[in-house]
């Protein structure tokens, strides 16, 4: 565990807290993509299947991971539930039109082609890694359709982007200090994902500076 990893996890938790607070205080979920939130719920449910066979008391790190995994699964399901019930009337359903099968399909194919071991759990795990890399796309699509990024949605995406960037630094750190630590699959997917955020922030900052509506290519 290094400083980048823990800071990355904390920004990930912060992003979720920002989203929940925004919905609670403004009593609406305008500008939030339900599709992205459902993809994240799917990412966590498929990533953390190991919860079923891991003893959380094995080590302090396992304990920490177990708590975080349960936190991510439960909060992502809670967000989806809230958006589908309490805040349903404020959800921009028509604008949230990204076709999710275009993300799930390729992620499934990639997982069948690239995985670490030939077991169902490993293929499902690889699927979650690939899906996470692109799960933000419906959210970016929605932002570009509405053309405006509310501050709070910007903060949410910023916290998520910080999480990705810090994880990348964590990998650099570990590759340097832990001999034999190589995670090609996670790294490739992670770099793609970090690139998506970097691209978003480039356009976000540019549109803010020029006071124009956000346009993503």
């Amino acid at each position: 565990m290094n400083i980048f990893r823990i800071a990355g996890d904390m920004s990930h938790v912060a992003s979720i807290a920002i989203l929940l607070l925004k919905m609670k205080t403004s009593r609406n979920c305008a500008g939030v993509s339900l599709k992205t939130q459902e993809l994240y719920a799917l990412v966590f449910l498929t990533r953390y299947v190991d919860l079923l066979f891991t003893n959380p008391l094995r080590s302090p790190l396992t304990m920490y991971n177990t708590i975080m995994k349960i936190l991510f699964i439960s909060t992502s399901l809670y967000i989806v539930y809230q958006m589908r019930t309490r805040y349903k009337h404020t959800y921009n359903e028509a604008a949230d039109a990204f076709r999710v099968p275009f993300l799930i399909g390729p992620a499934a194919v990639a997982a069948l082609l690239f995985h670490l071991k030939n077991t169902v759990v490993e293929v499902v795990w690889a699927f979650s890694i690939f899906l996470e890399a692109v799960a933000i796309m419906p959210q970016l699509f929605l932002l570009q359709k509405t053309g405006e990024v509310e501050n709070i949605t910007g903060h949410y995406i910023f916290a998520l982007g910080a999480y990705r960037g810090l994880y990348a630094l964590n990998w650099v750190w570990r590759a340097f200090w832990e001999p034999g630590y190589r995670q090609w699959l996670t790294w490739t997917a992670g770099i793609v994902q970090t690139g998506l955020y970097a691209d978003f922030f480039y356009h976000y900052i540019r549109s803010k500076r020029q006071g124009k509506k956000l346009k993503l290519p």
């Binding site: 996890d9 990533r47 991971n65 994880y167 964590n170 630590y181 996670t186």
Partner: peptide, 10 residues
């Protein structure tokens, strides 16, 4: 179980 130690990230 030792193999899973590699997957110690979230």
């Amino acid at each position: 179980d030792a193999e899973d130690d590699k997957k110690d990230e979230l």
